[in-house]
């Protein structure tokens, strides 16, 4: 296996989707090629750092506001029968 062949298999290698023979070839290449070993280590770290960064978290206050706005629009369509229950005013006597 050369470096080009190895790169073509990199996604399957990270995803653990590889038959044992091919996996052995890939591991042998990583063990013998320092450049590819660095690519594997730093690509794995790239994925980990993004996964662990909790980027773009949505605060509960924002989530609640968006949810309320969606539910309001849904009720306004009249497709949710309980809109009558939620919005009905007590009948005047």
């Amino acid at each position: 296996m050369n470096c080009t062949d190895f790169l073509a298999k990199l996604t399957d290698y990270f995803d653990g989707q590889m038959d044992p023979d091919l996996l052995a070839d890939v591991k042998a290449h990583i063990g013998s090629c320092h450049h590819c070993e660095v690519v594997v280590d730093t690509t794995r770290k790239t994925i980990e750092v993004y996964r662990g960064s909790r980027m773009y978290e949505c605060p509960e206050e924002l989530a609640a506001r968006m949810r309320a706005a969606v539910m309001k629009r849904c009720f306004e369509t009249g497709k949710l029968p309980d809109i009558e229950i939620k919005t009905q005013k007590p009948a005047a006597r």
């Binding site: 773009y56 978290e57 989530a63 949810r67 969606v70 539910m71 849904c74 949710l80 309980d82």
Partner: peptide
């Protein structure tokens, strides 16, 4: 027409969609 069910679905996925 069960609004509670739809609200549960929103809660489950609103953060992922955002």
């Amino acid at each position: 027409g069960d609004s509670t069910a739809f609200e549960i679905l929103i809660k489950q996925y609103e953060r992922q969609i955002f």
